[in-house]
Design a protein around this nucleic acid. Structure first.
Lengths: 227, 227
DNA sequence: CGCGGAATTGAGGCTCATCAAGGAGTGTGG
DNA sequence: CCACACTCCTTGATGAGCCTCAATTCCGCG
């Protein structure tokens, strides 16, 4: 995969004023990954930074026996793959067909006078990741399965700007591996929430969710009024 | 508590070349907290940064019903309480009598030419916190109780520089709230490890631990060869 | 049409939590 | 000096919550 990225085949390489967290012009190039494809692997050199324009990405860690913990889902607008060290500490995969803008890390951070503002941007992104991970600790360590699923749905609803029908890009196993559960438990929790009238699962492949009682769902998820 | 810190009673205020991550001189002052005392609370202004010289600190988050998730333990040498925002997102308490050096955040970060190096230091600290939190996600989401306890002991052993007898500052409940377990399960896991001959609990108040088979313990904890 | 992937649902089992009892150490007051 | 309370830990008994295994359905796709 990495060789593939290095060469950027099929990528229109162009200078672009990219309206990202980075206030500087930099070399970005567009790239598309098919559903299920790896974007970068654990321990690979972290030479690129990614921003999603379309699609969804999971970043995760694997144990030798196959247990998987998804650390985060990334949606359009999100930047991922940023590291302060040399290598990635997670694997990233496209959940569905995904288009990203890729920037060479050096092109973003080099330049003497840019250092301050670039560093501020990095700090901001790393801090956001830290806050997300820290709030996930409470969920994984101390919340029940129903609370986890409710918190997840509330957060996704927020990130998707509370659409009438929310279309989840990830499958039940992804949700389970994110919440530290099994896919069956996630499925049962969703069915329970549907039975309670809090949501509906109208579609046939079950990735569409309509929330009926957002405030009740949020209360179930115990979400604090976070930033 | 905060008013107390603000005034720094009993604190010798002095200019000091402090051999910390911060390469700059700054105003630090020494302060001591008794066992169990709060150092700062959730949502309080994050005006100070702390470095432990003696003792141990837990940082944690509480739910309304009392469930507690400890995010980290801090030992001598560790810096904690650093935030990029205005307020703390965790509560910090002294686990045992603890002496810290406290620096006003402004005194560390102000000064035009210091900005780059100070920012680098902040980034380094935040990154360390991020890595710790991320690796804790796998532990909380996907590892068994025995694996969690083994991983915890291996890490503590490392941080205490593998002493012959490791003296844990925290009690079983603290360990449990850090690992997402109950204190009984932690106790049973320790007893099991002792029965297996991997460690001994020689003392009477059970905070002393002697590791006999570090490599086996590490294997049980599934620790990756982390940075 | 048949196959595989994804989700749901049920039955049963395992891990860990809960509840409870008791021991040992420590501190306090008589 | 002892009695008593309190904290911390261990251990046992029981049970709840979630996992595992399995069957079924529905869908998309070659």
């Amino acid at each position: 995969m990495l060789e593939f990225v290095n060469g950027h085949p099929n990528a229109r390489l162009e200078r672009r004023d990219f309206d990202a967290s980075f206030g500087e012009k930099a070399f970005w190039s567009e790239f598309t990954y098919r559903r299920g494809r790896e974007i970068f692997g654990e321990a690979e050199p972290a030479d690129y930074v990614y921003q999603i324009t379309e699609g969804a990405v999971r970043t995760f860690e694997l144990l030798a026996d196959g247990r998987r913990q998804i650390g985060a889902f990334h949606l359009p607008g999100d930047i991922f793959g940023i590291e302060t060290g040399d290598t990635h500490r997670f694997t990233a995969e496209a959940i569905i067909d995904t288009t990203v803008w890729i920037a060479n890390r050096r092109s973003l951070f080099e330049g003497a006078d840019k250092n301050i503002s670039a560093m501020k941007d990095v700090l901001k992104l790393i801090t956001r990741n830290l806050h997300h991970a820290e709030s996930h600790l409470m969920l994984l360590g101390r919340q029940t399965s129903l609370e986890r699923v409710a918190a997840f749905l509330t957060k996704m609803d927020e990130r998707l700007q509370s659409p009438t029908t929310m279309l989840l890009p990830m499958n039940r196993r992804d949700i389970a591996d994110y919440l530290g559960l099994t896919l069956e438990t996630v499925s049962r929790s969703l069915s329970m929430l549907e039975r309670e009238g809090i949501l509906s699962l109208p579609g046939h492949h079950r990735k569409e969710i309509v929330l009926h009682r957002r405030s009740k769902l949020a209360r179930l998820g115990l979400l604090r009024l976070a930033p």
